[in-house]
Design a protein around this nucleic acid. Structure first.
Lengths: 214, 214
DNA sequence: GACTGTGAAGCCATTCACAGCT
DNA sequence: AGCTGTGAATGGCTTCACAGTC
C-alpha cells in the first residue's frame, strides 16, 4: 500500500466501479474479477487493478474481488460511508432538475437548502424545500454542517455566489459553465460544462469530414 | 502545421479560450497574448500556444493574437461556424432545464425536437416545442439533418434510447449518468456524470482529513 | 489454472527554454 | 523588447508482463 498523488481519473473510475459493483450485488453476484469490472465500465483490467492498488490490496489472487467488500472499500475511499448534506444556489430550471435528481439521493447526497437572490423565487417550494434568500445560507450551512455547494445560476452571477458560499463556510463547490472561480486554495472546485461536451462532439463530427477531404 | 491525434483536453480548452476571447471582444480588445488568455482561463501560456499550434499559426511574434481572428479560427476548428440542430430525449426536469439553457443557444445549438416515451408527457409543450413520441424521431432527424442527440432519461432507459437514436440516424450522443453505451464505432459518445463530480469533491474532502491523521 | 499486485516500459500531455519574427 | 512557435525535457498515466498466491 502506497499513497500520495492519486490521479483524478482514478477517482472518477472508482465512482464508476462502485456503481457497476452495486448492480452486480443486486443480482446476487459474490465475486468478480478485474476483467469483468473492466468490461462493465469500459476500461482495461490492468487499469482496474492499478486504480485499486493505490489504496490497498482488496482482492484474492486466483479468485478476484468480493463484490460486497469491494463496494464498501470504494465507498470508504470516496468518503461515501456517510451522507453528505448539500446546498444549492439557483432555483431556475437547472436547480429544480438537480433537486429532483435521483442520482444524488441514491449516493447519499441530500440537498438541505435551496437559495436564490431573485425575490420572485424566494419562498417558493421545490419538492419539499423552501427557497431561501442568500442571507440565510450561513445559518443553514452551520445547522447541517454542510461542506458542499452547487451553483446553478447564470454565468454572470457565479463569481458572486461563489464568494457568498465561501463566506458561509462551504469547502467544496460544483459549478456549471466556463467560469474560473477565484476562491481560497483550501476550497475545492470542480465544474461541469455541458457546452464543452457538445463542442467535443461537433469537433469530432467536423474533423471526421476534414479527414475525408485530406 | 501538423495534424493527427489531438488531445481531448486541447479541445476542451479551445472551447474555453473561445468563450474567454468573446468576452474580450465585447470589451473592444483587439489583441491578446497567450499569457493573457492563460490567465483568463487558468492554464499556462505554453499550453495555450501548444493547443493552437496543433491547428496552425494564428499569432504574430512580438505582438500576440488578433482577438476577432482567433475567435473565428477556433470556432472553425470546433465546427461552430454553423448552427447545429439537436434532438433531446427525456421531457423530465433535466430535459426541460436543457431546453431553456442559454449556454446552448449562445453557441449555436438549437434543440429542434424533444421526445419521450411517457404518454403523459407526449403532446405537452416545452418552450415552443411539442414533445413527440420516439416513433417520430427518424422523421425529425431527417427533416432537420440532425447529427447530435442528448439523452436525459433515467439510467435504465438509456441503452434503449441510444439504440433508437442510432437507428434514427444520429451520429453523436451526449448522455447523463454512468452508462457505457453499446453503439457502432462511428457514433461519437460522451457523457456527463454529475455524481462523479460530486464524488471527486467528497474524495478530496475526505482525503484531506486522512492526511491530517497520518 | 486463474487472477491479483506491481515494477518496468511505453505512451501521451504538459512544461521548458530558446530560436525566430516583428 | 516582446511574444509566438516548437523541439527537447519532463512528468504522469496507462499498459505490459510476470512473479506471487490461492
Amino acid at each position: 500500500m502506497k499513497a500520495l498523488r492519486i490521479p483524478e481519473a482514478t477517482i472518477s473510475r472508482l465512482s464508476h466501479y462502485s456503481r457497476f459493483l452495486e448492480r452486480l450485488e443486486k443480482r446476487g453476484i459474490i465475486t468478480v474479477s478485474s476483467g469483468e469490472i473492466a468490461k462493465g465500465v469500459g476500461v482495461s483490467p490492468a487499469q482496474v487493478r492499478k486504480d485499486l492498488a493505490y489504496f490497498g490490496e482488496f482482492g484474492t489472487r486466483g479468485v478476484g474481488y468480493n463484490v460486497k467488500d469491494l463496494i464498501h472499500y470504494i465507498m470508504k475511499i470516496l468518503g461515501l460511508t456517510q451522507n453528505w448534506p448539500v446546498i444549492l444556489v439557483g432555483a431556475g430550471n437547472l436547480g429544480t432538475a438537480l433537486c429532483t435528481y435521483r442520482g444524488f439521493t441514491d449516493r447519499g447526497f441530500n440537498i438541505v437548502g435551496v437559495f436564490d437572490n431573485d425575490l420572485t423565487k424566494i419562498g417558493k417550494r421545490i419538492v419539499e424545500l423552501e427557497v431561501y434568500p442568500l442571507e440565510r445560507m450561513a445559518e443553514v450551512v452551520a445547522e447541517h454542517n454542510v461542506k458542499i455547494g452547487i451553483i446553478a445560476v447564470p454565468i454572470s452571477a457565479v463569481p458572486d455566489i461563489a464568494k457568498v458560499m465561501v463566506d458561509a463556510g462551504i469547502h467544496a463547490i460544483l459549478t456549471f459553465g466556463p467560469v474560473v472561480l477565484d476562491v481560497p486554495e483550501r476550497v475545492i472546485v470542480r465544474n461541469v460544462d455541458l457546452t464543452v461536451k457538445l463542442e467535443i462532439l461537433t469537433f469530432n463530427l467536423n474533423f471526421r469530414d476534414l479527414h475525408s477531404i485530406l
